Computed example of a mutant assay.
Amino acid sequence: MGVLNVTPDSFSDGGDWLQPAAAVAHAQRMRDEGADIIDVGGESTRPGAATVSLEQERRRVVPVIEALAAQLDIPISIDTSKPQLMADAVAAGAGMVNDVNALRAEGAVELMAAHPEVSIVLMHMQGAPRSMQQAPCYDDVVSEVADFLEQRRQICTQAGIAARRLVVDPGIGFGKTLEHNLTLLRATGQLVERFGPVLLGVSRKSMFAQLLGDRPPRQRVEASVQTAMLAAQAGAAILRVHDVKQTREALSLLRAISHAEF
């Protein structure tokens, strides 16, 4: 899954793809480099991020999704927690909804139940983006994250959403300390065994600056790719990445060496 942030303030690429023409060209480049899905986001969810109005988010993403749906032969995902924008994005051609709030907004579950052709990513987040990193706290991060995802999955299936449409994401970096993140990454196999398809997004995140020395996001590529390979080996179904070419090449090497399918 290639990341396409059409925002001015995302932690790694804010402002790079704010203009629709630049966003479309970057998405095409990621497709050519091996992306299977393009994930379009119009509101930053980095720690401390300010909220964005529905109209502003709509102006940022809908024209891009319309263009990509007409030009690309791979699925387009909308990264949003707003049900109204989910509906607009699906109407524009999105085939996946990637929600950091796990469809907890009023009306989101019902909306998705009415669109059986759309896949859904349910992510765990403790708190909200503006405050989530102030004091993350768990007794048992793996069991608490898994229980939350199970609860959200059950709510969805009880509303008529087929389980095969659902992907879960433990939310690395979303209301977690470094040790929480590492513990969840070690538990990737457990999550896959319990839930089936798991999405992991570690690309360029601040955990690498904590582990390897302070460095800006664009200097975290190698660490991101290496961690993505460990996640793939543990069974993660979708890797959400900024650096598609490097990740795809690493997956090809891993496949050749291990004879596994990635």
Rank of each mutant, 00 (worst) to 15 (best):
T177P: 00
G160S: 09
L18S: 05
G201Q: 04
T247M: 10
P217A: 05
Q210Y: 11
A69M: 12
L178D: 05
A89N: 05
K82T: 10
L18P: 01
F195T: 03
R152F: 05
A50P: 04
A237N: 03
I76V: 13
M123L: 06
E249Y: 05
D147N: 11
S119M: 10
P129S: 13
L122N: 00
V109G: 01
P217Y: 10
K205G: 01
A70W: 08
H180C: 07
I76R: 01
F262Y: 15
A209D: 09
A89V: 09
E150C: 11
L166M: 10
A94S: 10
A49Q: 08
D140A: 13
A22W: 07
D32V: 08
F148G: 02
V121M: 00
A260K: 11
E106K: 11
G171N: 02
R194A: 14
A159C: 11
R153K: 13
S10D: 09
N181G: 06
A67E: 11
V142C: 11
V145W: 01
S252L: 15
Q56Y: 07
I257R: 11
Q126N: 12
S44W: 07
G175K: 06
P197Y: 10
M123P: 00
A69Q: 04
V97I: 15
I120G: 01
S81C: 08
W17S: 01
L254A: 15
A146H: 02
D9Q: 10
G34T: 08
A91R: 12
L149Q: 04
T227S: 14
L149T: 00
A260N: 10
R58Q: 14
R46T: 10
R186G: 07
P20F: 12
P216Y: 05
S224M: 13
A128Y: 11
I120T: 03
V90L: 08
S131R: 12
M125L: 12
E193N: 13
V109E: 00
V118F: 08
S131E: 15
R58W: 13
Q19W: 13
D39A: 09
P216C: 05
A50C: 09
V52F: 13
L182S: 06
V90P: 00
D169F: 03
V167L: 14
K82D: 15
A69I: 06
T51Y: 08
R60L: 12
A50D: 15
V241M: 06
V121N: 00
S53R: 07
R164S: 15
A236G: 04
S77E: 05
A94C: 10
R58C: 12
R220M: 08
R59S: 14
V145A: 06
A236P: 00
G213E: 04
I76K: 02
A113H: 06
C137L: 14
